[in-house]
């Protein structure tokens, strides 16, 4: 067991593939762990929440559950913020919470192994790098692999009373 471990690690990294859902925000492509995704649905006008930050669009009724909707395009100041019939909401299941995020479009489900994800260079931006797991390249595209749970529960998002960090 121990002896073969070293060999195995290399093999594991290449073999254990995880599925990611990719979506676009403006010109950028993001990937999130597909196990965090509950469903994808069309955008419907949410009910406003008083005095909420602008990227929190409000809440919707998802089969009896009140679900807040976050527009990541506003949050990251990316792309055109308009709501068309093609605008999609990804409903995320983060621990016990359900949150919806508005994105420009959902593109693909990709398989990535740990080896394929490279560390992102550290630079300050609106998008705090601590929420970035790394960067991966798919063909000619670059995909930003995001720790969506950490992002959505951060104090920055103002989605929870006390951030879980």
């Amino acid at each position: 067991m121990e002896a073969g471990h070293k060999l195995g690690t290399q093999a594991d990294e290449n073999l254990v593939m995880q599925e990611y859902l990719t979506f676009t925000l403006g010109n950028e492509e993001y990937a999130i762990d597909i196990l965090k995704v509950q469903e994808i649905r069309g955008y419907e006008k949410p009910t406003l929440i008083a005095k909420a930050p602008p990227f929190i669009k409000g809440v919707i009724n998802l089969r009896g559950t009140i679900v807040p909707i976050v527009d990541l395009r506003i949050k990251f100041e990316l792309g055109q913020v308009d709501y068309t019939p093609l605008t999609v909401v990804i409903i995320l299941n983060l621990g016990a919470r359900v949150v919806g995020v508005v994105v420009d479009s959902v593109s693909d489900v990709i398989m990535l192994s740990a080896a394929q994800i490279r560390p992102a260079p550290d630079f300050s931006a609106t998008f705090d790098t601590q929420y970035i797991v790394g960067l991966a390249s798919m063909e000619s595209r670059m995909v930003i692999v995001t720790d969506i749970e950490r992002l959505m529960t951060s104090a920055d998002m103002a989605l929870v009373d006390e951030a879980m960090e």
Binding site: I49, A50, A52, T65, A96
Partner: peptide, 16 residues
């Protein structure tokens, strides 16, 4: 319905 289940307390609002 609880608003806090998936969101947080909103001043002036007791629920949804």
């Amino acid at each position: 319905k609880s608003l806090e289940a998936n969101y947080r307390r909103v001043p002036g609002i007791s629920g949804a």
